[in-house]
């Protein structure tokens, strides 16, 4: 079992390493990631939202849809934990639903 796991891990790692061969160099300002979307956000976000913190601007507005679901994710986590873990005390009136 452990050998199998190790083998799977090494395979995955090898494929990922193989994939990194094509990557732009670390810290390269001309890499695609640094130029395509980032340029637009850096140039326009402050003007369009009046929020100097680019991360907050993008998080709250441009990608607000993501953030909304992120909030829902943690909300779900809270509920899931309550539903999984909460022990009911029959005497406590508050827990009656």
């Amino acid at each position: 079992m452990k050998v199998l796991a190790l083998f799977a891990t090494l395979m995955t790692g090898a494929i990922l390493l193989y994939g990194t061969m094509d990557f732009p160099a670390f810290g390269d300002p001309q890499s695609p990631a640094a130029t395509h979307l980032a340029t637009y956000f850096t140039e326009n976000a402050v003007r369009e939202t009046h929020v100097p913190n680019l991360v907050t601007a993008v998080l709250g507005d441009y990608r607000g849809y993501d953030t909304m679901f992120e909030t829902v994710v943690i909300y779900c986590a809270g509920l899931a934990v309550v539903s999984v873990l909460r022990k009911k005390k029959p005497s406590a009136p508050e827990n009656k639903s």
Binding site: P29, A33, A34, T35, L37, A38, T39, F41, T42, E43, A45, V46, L54, V55, V58, L59, R63, D66, T67, E70
Partner: peptide, 18 residues
């Protein structure tokens, strides 16, 4: 205005917060 090359790319940060 702003020189884009001077500012770290914020997009991955946003994604990673999520």
């Amino acid at each position: 205005g702003v020189n884009v090359a001077d500012i770290v790319n914020p997009v991955p940060h946003v994604l990673m917060l999520t």
